[in-house]
Design a protein around this nucleic acid. Structure first.
Lengths: 213, 213
DNA sequence: CTATATTGTTACTCATGAGTAACTTAAACT
DNA sequence: AGTTTAAGTTACTCATGAGTAACAATATAG
């Protein structure tokens, strides 16, 4: 009788259907694998990390990984996808918010320092360049250039509207990324240096440089 | 008779002694190997470069390399020695020349951009961190910290003498190195960007930042 | 001119780690 | 409830590349 009631009250579908469907579960697992892999790569570097290491962290065996990624390099490719989405998303926001070029640049820097706290992004920054497959390498280069180009545009806009002093936006964009990406190699949220002070110091250099006037 | 004259005119030692002694030749060859290795590492990265690749570039066979270096990692260690000497040498010069802290910082930057044109230095910058052997890793870290510390001192001096605006010298030194070392990854002397313009742009950021006042 | 240390070679060993084949267990849709 | 598809396992192959042993040549010093 009890059984009957249960069955009667809940629709058959609701009873048997799991909360997440297969595709969703797969995505979640893929993300976890990327996260474990990225953490491992940040610890020991891409080449010193074996797929067995990653599998161990994820508590599965190596061949299982191949159900989620094509091969080792594909992990980097997938990390790059995540990175590209987040960084371009940030740029979308910054541009949408508008304001003078210099202000947009400030907003971008603030957001970027936030973003590079994430292991997957850090992994991407550190290992972009390792790509062996020429097609993957080209794609990576293209995506990187795309982002750099958007920042260059913001700087260029700043020069036009007078908020940024006349300069070579290409070089400035590259130098800015060199510094920001460098940060991702050493900065840890847990350390003594707060997020705010780091952003402050970076913005102070960008706005004023270091000379005393 | 001719033979006799020759022998009589030139001292026996001068006749038979080669221009360079063994130790000197060895040093020159070691340097060439480091240069070939560094170029290979910059091309394809440390792990994608085999000792056979390096041997081929140097036109010898792999085991010969072991006459000059202990093992693969030792190449990085020896590149680091070269880098340490040159960078510390630059710092010696800069400090000896004297002047206000900010001027010394300028001089250092100028010299550093010059230095990172060299393949051995570039190789060191790119691959410092790859060290597997814990002793070698510690030594590397120590040497790197030493250099950073000296730049920090220069900045601190600038803050004291008023030539540098009040700031956190530690963070500024790190950010500066992040940017400068980033340059070493992409800048080539042969490219369209002249040495002078690059230094100009870097110095402009350091002195004024990019905001228009 | 000869003995000896140096520089180099050929031909291996040996560990590692990416990728695969074949099989088992678990989940989910009808 | 039973069939199918997904997810995972064990047990391999296979290439690569660091490092070595044993042997060959070349140059230097006495």
């Amino acid at each position: 009788m009890d059984k009957m009631n249960k069955k009667a009250n809940l629709s058959k579908a609701a009873l048997n259907r799991p909360v997440l469907n297969r595709e969703e579960k797969r995505q979640i697992k893929l993300d976890a694998i990327l996260r474990h892999a990225a953490a491992a790569f940040m610890d020991r570097g891409y080449y010193k990390t074996s797929l067995d290491d990653i599998a161990r962290r994820h508590k599965v065996t190596k061949p299982t990984l191949y159900y989620y990624v094509r091969n080792k390099e594909d992990i980097l490719v997938k990390c790059e996808e995540v990175a590209s989405l987040r960084i371009n998303g940030l740029l979308d926001e910054v541009v949408a918010t508008g304001g003078a070029g210099f202000v947009q640049l400030q907003n971008f820097i603030e957001g970027y320092v936030e973003i590079i706290t994430d292991d997957i992004i850090r992994c991407h920054i550190r290992h972009r360049g390792q790509r062996e497959d020429p097609i993957a390498r080209d794609a990576s280069l293209k995506m990187h250039r795309g982002i750099e180009h958007r920042v260059r545009e913001i700087i260029g806009k700043g020069v036009e509207d007078g908020s940024v002093r006349p300069c070579n936006p290409t070089i400035i964009a590259i130098l800015l990324f060199d510094a920001l990406n460098g940060i991702s190699a050493w900065y840890r949220d847990e350390g003594g240096l707060s997020h705010e002070e780091l952003v402050d110091q970076v913005l102070l250099i960008v706005t004023q440089g270091v000379r005393n006037n």
